[in-house]
C-alpha cells in the first residue's frame, strides 16, 4: 500500500519523497510538493480514502527549513536536520514559509502522510484545497490568520480565530505583540 502510494506520488513530485521512521517522527511519508501540486496531492490522497487531519504553517524566518531529506534517515539517531537542505535549496537561502498538510486514513493499514509545501516568505500564496476537501476550509483560514499565507481561491479568508478586524499574523516569527 505504501509502495503504491509512493509510486503515485513519484509521478507528481520532483524531489524524492521520504519514508520516515514512524516510531520517531510519528508519520510514515513525507512529501514535498510545489504550490502548484498541492491540489493534485490532495486529490490523490482523497481518492485513496485519506482525510485531512490538519493544516498548519511554519515560518522559517532567517533559517534554512529543516528537512527530512536523506540525512535524517541516515542519521536518525544522531543529528538529522538542516544541513542537507541547504544543498537542495542552493544559493542564498531566501526566507521560506512552509505549509504542512497532515493526512491520515481510517481504513486499511495505518499511514500518515505529511505533505509540505515551501513558499517564498515575501509572497506566500498557494491554491486552496477546500473545494476538494471542505474540512480544509477552516484549517486554511486559521493558517491564514496565524501566518498570513494566502490560499488563493478560498471562499472566505476572513479571520476565524483572531478578532474580525485583525490585520496581524501572530505566528510569524517577526511578529511583536
Amino acid at each position: 500500500m505504501l509502495d503504491e502510494l509512493k509510486n503515485e506520488f513519484a509521478s507528481l513530485v520532483p524531489v524524492p519523497l521520504i519514508e520516515t521512521d514512524y516510531r520517531f517522527k510519528g508519520y510514515h511519508l513525507d512529501v514535498e510538493v510545489g504550490p502548484d501540486q498541492v491540489v493534485a496531492a490532495a486529490e490523490l490522497l482523497d481518492r485513496r480514502g485519506f482525510f485531512l487531519e490538519a493544516i498548519t504553517g511554519v515560518d522559517w524566518l532567517g533559517k534554512a527549513p529543516l528537512s527530512n531529506q536523506p540525512e535524517v534517515e541516515a542519521g536518525e539517531a544522531g543529528e538529522g536536520g538542516g544541513a542537507g537542505k541547504a544543498e537542495a535549496a542552493t544559493a542564498p537561502p531566501t526566507d521560506k514559509m512552509e505549509v504542512v498538510y497532515d493526512y491520515n486514513r481510517t481504513v486499511g493499514e495505518l499511514c500518515r502522510v505529511a505533505v509540505r509545501c515551501r513558499l517564498d516568505r515575501a509572497n506566500p500564496e498557494l491554491p486552496t484545497v477546500s473545494r476538494l476537501i471542505p474540512g480544509a476550509n477552516w484549517h486554511e483560514r486559521e493558517t491564514h490568520d496565524f501566518f498570513g499565507i494566502i490560499f488563493s481561491g478560498h471562499p472566505d479568508l476572513s479571520p476565524l480565530l483572531l478578532p474580525e478586524d485583525a490585520d496581524f499574523h501572530p505566528l510569524r516569527k517577526d511578529f511583536k505583540a
Binding site: 517522527k25 487531519e53 511554519v58
Partner: peptide, 9 residues
C-alpha cells in the same frame, strides 16, 4: 529534542 518535526496523535 533533536531538530526536526514530529507528529503524534
Amino acid at each position: 529534542p533533536p531538530p526536526g518535526d514530529y507528529y503524534s496523535a
